[in-house]
Design a protein around this nucleic acid. Sequence first.
RNA 1: GCCUCAAUAGCUCAGACGGUUAGAGCGACGGACUGUUAAUCCGCAGGUCGUAGGUUCGAUUCCUACUUGAGGCGCCA
Length: 466
Amino acid sequence: MTSYSVKQLLSGVVAIGSQVCIKGWVRTRRDSKAGLSFVSISDGSCAETLQAVVESKLSNYATEVLNLTKDCAVIISGELVASQGGSQAVEILASAVEVTGFVENPDTYPISPKRHTVEYLREHAHLRVRTNLISSVARVRNAVSMAIHDYLQSNGFYWIHTPLITASDCEGAGELFKVTTLDLSNPPRDDKGNVNYKEDFFGREAYLTVSGQLNVETYCMGLSKVYTFGPTFRAENSNTTRHLAEFWMVEPEIAFANLMDDAALAQGMLKHVFKTVLNNNSDDMRFFAQFIDKSVVTRLESMVNDSFEMISYTDAIARLEKSGKSFENPLYWGVDMASEHERFLCEELIGKPTIVTDYPKDIKAFYMRQNEDGKTVAAMDILAPGVGEIVGGSQREERYDVLVKRMQEMGVPTESLDWYLDLRRFGTAPHAGFGLGLERAVSYITGVQNVRDIIPFPRTPNNAAY
RNA sequence: GCCUCAAUAGCUCAGACGGUUAGAGCGACGGACUGUUAAUCCGCAGGUCGUAGGUUCGAUUCCUACUUGAGGCGCCA
């Protein structure tokens, strides 16, 4: 007997009357004194469940079927029939129910068939995918990841596997996790009594990467269109709904490109992602619209059709000042905008994703290309209403002298980045790229506000269980 | 790292000016009923009120510290 997923059976590709088999976990069981039970099965293939009708004549009906509770694992075989009930087109009339695993203690089993808070589910991260919410998030996360690959691959990009362990501690993107095999209770010392990293695994200090950008730039200068897509690590003591110590990031990098090309790429990619999710995950999105935020679907739809707003930093500051709104944090040309400024700008003044360009050079990283005005750099951030910054990017400084001078001004050691400077000495070319935080993007798409509910096992300060 | 809030049944919460047996809904369990749909109805069980001190005749309630969680800010994706 052929096995099918719930999604296949509900889609109508299998003829009524076929003998079929489904494997999954019980969501709910309803018994009828007419001598049958209704058992809804979820197998993760879609947001919906398949209803199995189990008649009391089955040999294990009284002993097993009547004891099924949420998340018991079952294999059900039978005939696919047109449903007599109103809520589904088809159901399976069971000829056999095999229970591969009961839930031992249904009274204290953490995932009972009721609404749970996301905070509670976080404390049972190994079981939470068995809820409607987290399983829908997992499917959308997968769809977003594949849509990113799909968009970039079909536009001629190569996926580059940049290292997760790095020796560069000067990328300016935050605190790093140290990687070492030294005995921390008794490390080797040099003449001066300092820890002697020459005896460490790599013969030098090493860290988990905070970004694959500098590495991927090297491949960009030969393959033209490249991207990294993988985990990234920040040892910041950040306690917010949008920060993780381990998160996934996509970083495209394009050669012979300027900031406008970069912004166009980011926008094109985001729109493709939104469109794909709307098309392929409509049942998941319907769930989010019903239980999380009723505007998620219409928001995405308008995003696919509208273009993003583009505004320079200078104009953004001017509009914020002119709005008359009073802010907690100081606001003047030259400050790094605070969250309240960014939110007010994209949520109230503009009302859609906003690309802010050309920031003051003193608040941005050393590798960003200086503009002709001598005051700003060719950087862009994309702000999403409700989430804040989801993309940060820039045109890179391709001029050797300008880059070295900037590094010296900002106290970035040039010796350890001589390989990066080589790119500017041997066939340099204008290029640009950006980083998209995967969890923030999925948070924006689903309306699920905390990125800790977007990644299966969130790592945050004081939290690395599981 | 800073600020604020919270912790009472498996879950979500209510409550007690400090005083005898701490409540509800959902879940679980038992029963009734029904081609049911988060079914409905009836019943039953389930709590050292986060931990440790302090004040008090008496603390789950007030105070202090700690732990854990949440939200905001900063850092950023």
